[in-house]
Simulated assay, not measured.
Amino acid sequence: MRFYWNGTSPFVRKVSVVLIELGLWDAVERVQTNPRDQASGFWDRNPLAKVPAFELDDGQVLFDSPVICAWLDETHGGGRLSGTGERRWRIQTLSALADGAIEGGLLARQETMRPEGEQSPAWIDKQLAIAQRGLDRLDASVAELAGEPNLAAIGAACGIAWLGFRHSRIDWLQGRPRLAEWYAGFAERPSMTGTLPG
């Protein structure tokens, strides 16, 4: 199995954390990838030109992170990160919420990378507000993140870390004491300390 990745993507980090939590980190070949480099041949594996992507032994390529994480958990984790029954749908919903908060932060960051005269402050504010609302809902749902790791908890933790890394002028956990307390504990897991962005 091959894991196409780079070191700063929060979605790559989600997959990395899942691999470590399932004891698979050393079982995959990790391929450092610049998804913007057409000459690398990566676009043939993922035409969306995004990491992460995950190549199975039969050559099939999975993307993006929700699919990869679910596949890893089902095939190698017995579904323990996904939950069962109604809980499974809550975990998927909270995972999508965490991903949406990350996307808001990503879109805001991309806008700030445009030439200053072409940036839209209103667009940046809108996307950061989406991320803030996502964290508000995660704060209200923190009981569902607690306990044994699940895919929602992994996504939320990776999202909080990335937002703090890329939008460091904002205190993302201010006014969210339950989420802050939960995150402080989860961030100490070896799967998190071993996958710090940089």
Score class of each variant (00 low, 15 high):
residue 119 Q to M: 14
residue 132 Q to R: 14
residue 106 L to K: 06
residue 140 A to W: 04
residue 30 R to L: 01
residue 149 P to K: 14
residue 143 A to W: 02
residue 52 P to E: 02
residue 156 A to Y: 14
residue 23 G to W: 13
residue 32 Q to H: 11
residue 163 L to Y: 04
residue 136 D to H: 05
residue 156 A to P: 09
residue 55 E to M: 03
residue 116 E to H: 11
residue 30 R to E: 03
residue 91 I to S: 04
residue 68 I to G: 07
residue 147 G to P: 00
residue 137 R to Y: 03
residue 74 E to R: 11
residue 53 A to D: 00
residue 82 S to W: 02
residue 130 I to H: 07
residue 96 A to R: 09
residue 65 S to A: 11
residue 8 T to I: 15
residue 154 I to M: 14
residue 86 E to F: 12
residue 34 N to F: 08
residue 19 L to P: 09
residue 23 G to H: 09
residue 155 G to A: 15
residue 17 V to G: 04
residue 28 V to A: 06
residue 85 G to H: 13
residue 3 F to Q: 04
residue 164 G to Q: 01
residue 108 A to S: 12
residue 119 Q to I: 15
residue 34 N to V: 04
residue 103 E to R: 11
residue 58 D to Y: 05
residue 170 I to H: 09
residue 108 A to F: 05
residue 192 M to E: 06
residue 120 S to D: 15
residue 55 E to Y: 00
residue 197 P to W: 06
residue 53 A to M: 01
residue 193 T to P: 03
residue 101 A to Q: 00
residue 178 R to T: 10
residue 50 K to I: 01
residue 158 C to R: 06
residue 91 I to W: 02
residue 150 N to I: 01
residue 183 Y to R: 00
residue 17 V to T: 08
residue 101 A to Y: 01
residue 96 A to I: 02
residue 150 N to T: 03
residue 62 L to V: 01
residue 51 V to R: 07
residue 147 G to M: 03
residue 81 L to F: 10
residue 41 G to R: 03
residue 68 I to Y: 10
residue 94 L to Y: 05
residue 70 A to D: 11
residue 75 T to C: 04
residue 51 V to Y: 04
residue 164 G to V: 10
residue 132 Q to H: 10
residue 174 Q to P: 00
residue 154 I to E: 13
residue 152 A to L: 12
residue 108 A to Y: 05
residue 23 G to K: 08
residue 177 P to N: 07
residue 136 D to W: 00
residue 160 I to C: 13
residue 11 F to N: 08
residue 137 R to T: 09
residue 131 A to S: 15
residue 78 G to P: 03
residue 65 S to M: 06
residue 189 R to P: 01
residue 167 H to Q: 15
residue 33 T to E: 07
residue 71 W to V: 04
residue 71 W to Y: 15
residue 123 W to Q: 06
residue 35 P to A: 04
residue 58 D to I: 04
residue 196 L to P: 02
residue 170 I to M: 01
residue 119 Q to S: 15
residue 108 A to M: 08
residue 80 R to D: 02
residue 49 A to L: 00
residue 140 A to V: 03
residue 40 S to C: 10
residue 92 Q to K: 10
residue 156 A to S: 12
residue 85 G to P: 12
residue 28 V to D: 05
residue 68 I to V: 14
residue 62 L to Q: 00
residue 149 P to Y: 10
residue 123 W to H: 10
residue 149 P to F: 12
residue 63 F to Q: 08
residue 113 M to S: 13
residue 167 H to I: 07
residue 82 S to D: 06
residue 93 T to P: 00
residue 153 A to F: 07
residue 92 Q to E: 12
residue 26 D to S: 07
residue 88 R to F: 08
residue 71 W to G: 08
residue 13 R to V: 09
residue 11 F to C: 11
residue 123 W to F: 15
residue 85 G to W: 11
